[in-house]
């Protein structure tokens, strides 16, 4: 029992560094998440932060997709306007 405990302590000591690192990283990550950015960092579990990160990344990807689609369409429709644009530029 005691030996196990000491062993666990040793392992935990070695793990504590990365735990601290991960905690810092998770808190950093949390700051990037608008969902839970304003909450007190103590009350948000790491798994929740990660979950939110995943959701947020998916959201961002979707948003990027939407925006890129919109932009491409937008720019695709500028064909007719391009003459005007070029004209405009050339007029300068």
């Amino acid at each position: 029992m005691s030996s196990r405990r000491s062993r666990s302590r040793q392992t935990s000591s070695s793990r504590n560094i990365t735990d601290d690192q991960i905690h810092d990283l998770v808190s950093k990550l949390q700051q990037l998440l608008p969902e839970i950015r304003n909450r007190s960092s103590d009350k948000v579990s790491a798994s929740r932060v990660l979950q939110e990160t995943c959701n947020y990344i998916r959201n961002l990807n979707r948003e990027v997709d939407d925006l890129s689609e919109r932009l491409s369409e937008l720019l695709a429709t500028t064909d007719t306007a391009q003459a005007a644009i070029i004209r405009n530029l050339l007029m300068q």
Partner: peptide, 27 residues
């Protein structure tokens, strides 16, 4: 931008770009 959306459906461009078309007509 399309790199996130490789197969961007340009077929729907007419509907989405509808409002933008006239805008570009009058920059």
């Amino acid at each position: 931008f399309p790199n996130m959306l490789p197969n961007s459906p340009l077929q729907t461009a007419a509907t989405v770009a509808g409002p933008f078309g006239p805008r570009f007509a009058m920059p």
